[in-house]
Write a protein that binds this DNA or RNA. Structure first.
Lengths: 125, 125
DNA sequence: TTTCGATATGTTTATTTTTGCATATCGATA
DNA sequence: TATCGATATGCAAAAATAAACATATCGAAA
């Protein structure tokens, strides 16, 4: 550790968030919703996904509604009732959206990590 | 516009934030502080920088204090009093930190934009 | 030695976000 | 047709953030 920074650099953690909005700054897609949509499709249930991610159902429901309002068509295939109460999965469009965001992250994640590594390295010398 | 998404894609704006924290999740550096530090150094004044960026002095002062507390040494060279009230610039370490974050952004910005462009393109076909 | 504007900081008030609570709906299955 | 658990949604409570307000301090220059 050659520089003054050296001491603390190992305690620094990287965070980043990518999100999309319309011109009214309404968040229409982002890391949180992306993760949530993936998990809903995997679990087949909004409630199960919320429980696992630690978000309230109320909040998630409201957020996802905003995305659909923006696009004007459903991303979620919701079913109420039945012995198990109901279930939710993604529509074709929902899946496409998630997949496109997957690709987005594949494109940027490693580069951001690389940028961070260089940042630390630069402060170290 | 071949897909259902087509209609709305042109209204989508990209946003992202990169920040660093310690293990207690205290924000120790990020896009906001980066911008602020640059402007303080440029203007030679915290107040002037706050006014220009639209942040309150109180808030900025508190935030910057946190960074210095984390690193354990000053990033800002502050002078009080004098005919013009005082001024603030960056210490050598402050400049190094800003410069390293500049490099970080140079590394990632274009890639993120590229990822976004691909995202839109993918939804368009 | 008075002045003036920026820095310094505690306290309080507003705003914004989230959470929590309550209650209604739905419908396959027992 | 009664049940059960997830979806649907309004509303109030609370928690987290930010803005405002109020002073105090500092020190070069007039």
């Amino acid at each position: 550790m050659e520089t003054k920074f050296g001491e603390r650099l190992k305690d620094i953690r990287l965070h980043y968030k990518i999100w999309l909005s319309d011109d009214k700054e309404t968040g229409i897609m982002g890391d949180g919703k992306w993760q949530m949509l993936k998990l809903i499709d995997e679990k087949g249930s909004m409630k199960a996904a919320c429980d696992e991610l630690g978000y309230t159902y109320r909040r998630t429901w409201g957020n996802l509604k905003k995305i659909e309002k923006f696009f004007g068509f459903p991303l979620l295939e919701k079913q109420r009732g039945g012995i198990d109460g109901g279930h939710t999965t993604l529509t074709e469009e929902g899946k496409r959206l998630v997949k496109a965001f997957d690709t987005f992250h594949d494109t940027v994640d490693s580069r951001i990590q690389q940028g961070f590594d260089r940042f630390i390295q630069e402060l170290n010398q």
